[in-house]
Design a binder for these strands. Structure first.
Lengths: 353, 353
DNA sequence: ACAAAGAGTGTGTCCGTGCACAAATATATG
DNA sequence: CATATATTTGTGCACGGACACACTCTTTGT
């Protein structure tokens, strides 16, 4: 290993003062080309890294961080992301980062538009985005790029943008996996029912459609003999949905498994439980409060989770590394997709670390 | 939030000097009872935490850390734990911690004894233990307790010791889970074959026996109709083992699933693959190189993993928190048991964070 | 009674970086 | 050429905690 050179030592080697090295390091300008080159040469040669700890204690600036995600209730997906963010901010609390949380309605593009306008007005030092609307987000990112404000994505990423970090699960893989699981549970010959939510936003969501692709890719590739039947349901009218589900199942006794490719599995599971259909396996996404309840009582067999808390945590860390430690590498991580069943559920606190 | 108070501010409030606060914080003694109480009162009131960064800068001591685990080859369980440890040490490299790795033969109590003697001789500041032998470890821990040297367990914990941290998976839950998975895959009526290794150490290992308990607990509780058949195999004689496995399966065509409760699933999976028994589901533990190969080629259906890398990482962090930041809380974490299938495998880098 | 030892307390320096400000040098202007 | 104005460069203090050391006040031993 060997100790790192300090800024002063580098300054000595380059025949300049520590202030000049500092200016080069932080691109503050006001350095003559020849001296800058000398310093850069040494920096490259020794692969200099700032001492994180000393940097932190001497930084005077207050950083403003804006987090912008869809609205959420307690115990839901976005809430978990948020608590990961909070926990990271807590860990880095010596840094005097002020964070603001702006939320928007994930079913209303206009509310997203407003939220983004608010961000631009606030002009923060960095932003964590949970994006739903492609157009709006792309446009926002354009502005941010122009202003040189770094931003990170959680949950999903919008193409044609330049985030400094992106934390998301591979959604097609999730779709494939849920199909593989249900098939494993029910046998390759039996039918699977795919319950698709009618609600406006969910179906158009980028994540949902990717999962759907993955699901059907798996079906195609494996050439499974059992068919996949689709049923659209609306959460607004539980009565009608319940009737629809039950009638499909009665008419198709070959259906042994049900997939719900978003976090609404509990809605279907409750219907099945109410009608005593215990042998039908239900698989869905996310450890929301209701889904967990159903997994515990057995009405859901398996849940897939994409480590929302870890996503939040890492996004903050990436921002800080970029902002404070001037790290250049970007953080693009495909989160693991965790498979949750009754027995391993209790241990998934989704540790931020 | 609001900023943390500094030591000097606390000193001012308590009407003492910063030195006195420092002595209280680090239990260095030489503080009169009345002043100590005053300081402690304030500390409790404001939930004081040391500023990590400043601490790191000003600490002069060199810490010696010993890691003691069973020997391992590349790409195996203990290797993953070790790389988690390395990655944590890397992250805290400003702390000048010198680490030594001592290994022992997990099938030879005497080699473990020697390793432990070596530890005591080296008299380090902290130890991370991957324990296999109960007696030896308990005795070591006794000595360490007497000397006041903190130690942390990874992989499993020995009863009757006082570690400052313990990172392990809930083994019974793992046993239950593997049984539930196989049952889900093969149906509750079909038989399951439990392949048990004959090798001396494995069977006695604490983890193994706990998994076995969990496995049979699940069988009992669910009252599954399909039987569980046991077969002992030896890795030393592949020919004989292969013959034994195949003959059992021929004689019991009702067997649709095979469980191996340690990391040797690939051994059985390879035998099945060689004999074209593709429809039998194999489930095992750990993301060792060979198991991953089998999961990819389909000869293993599912693997359970206990985040070895994370275990290693957190153990170091816990030690550092104890040693440097004088944190008092102990870190007892039951690691999540990850379920790995072909589709989610690629994303399990087992990020240390 | 006086020295020595010990307990309790405060002071000051160091760590490496950030940043404001002073100093030095270069360039422009009349 | 002198002076004003940029531009570049150097200097010094602050950040917050660790720890060595010095200082004061008691206690103990002779």
């Amino acid at each position: 290993m060997g100790r790192q050179l300090t800024i002063k030592e580098i300054a000595a080697r380059a025949g300049v003062s520590s202030g000049t090295v500092d200016r080069v390091l932080h691109n503050r300008g006001k350095v003559s080309p020849d001296k800058e080159e000398k310093v850069r040469a040494i920096l490259d040669e020794i692969d200099f890294k700032l001492n994180i700890h000393t940097s932190v204690i001497s930084i005077k600036k207050n950083y403003e961080l804006v987090i912008c995600t869809p609205e959420y209730s307690q115990g839901e997906y976005w809430g978990a992301i948020d608590s990961g963010i909070k926990s990271a901010l807590d860990e880095f609390n010596d840094l005097s980062i002020v964070s603001t949380h702006i939320t928007y309605d994930q079913f209303d593009a206009n509310s997203c538009h407003k939220a983004y306008a608010q961000i631009l007005k606030q002009n923060p030092d960095a932003i964590i985005l949970g994006p739903i609307f492609e157009q709006e987000t792309r446009s926002l990112c354009q502005d941010l790029d122009n202003r040189g404000i770094p931003y990170a994505f959680v949950d999903s990423t919008i193409e044609g943008t330049n985030p400094i970090a992106s934390l998301m699960a591979d959604q097609p893989a999730g779709g494939r996996l849920i199909c593989r699981l249900l098939e494993s549970f029910t046998g390759t010959d039996n039918e699977i029912l795919l319950c698709r939510p009618k609600q406006a936003g969910s179906e158009q969501s980028y994540n949902y459609s990717k999962r759907l692709n993955g699901f059907y890719d798996y079906v195609k590739e494996t050439g499974r003999t059992g068919k996949v039947k689709e049923l659209f349901f609306s959460m607004d009218d539980s009565e009608a949905s319940a009737q629809a589900v039950i009638s499909v199942l009665k008419q198709n006794p070959g259906i042994k498994g049900v997939a719900i490719l978003n976090s609404r599995g509990y809605f279907i599971a409750d219907i099945l439980a109410e009608h005593g259909l215990k042998d039908i396996k239900v698989a869905s996404f996310d450890l929301s409060y209701n889904n967990v309840r159903c997994l515990k009582n057995g009405s859901i067999s398996v849940l897939l989770s994409q480590r929302p808390m870890t996503q939040g945590f890492i996004s903050v860390r990436a921002i800080i590394e970029q902002l404070i430690y001037r790290k250049k590498e970007k953080t693009f991580i495909k989160m693991p997709i965790d498979i949750l069943m009754k027995d391993n559920l209790p241990f998934y606190k989704d540790l931020p670390l």
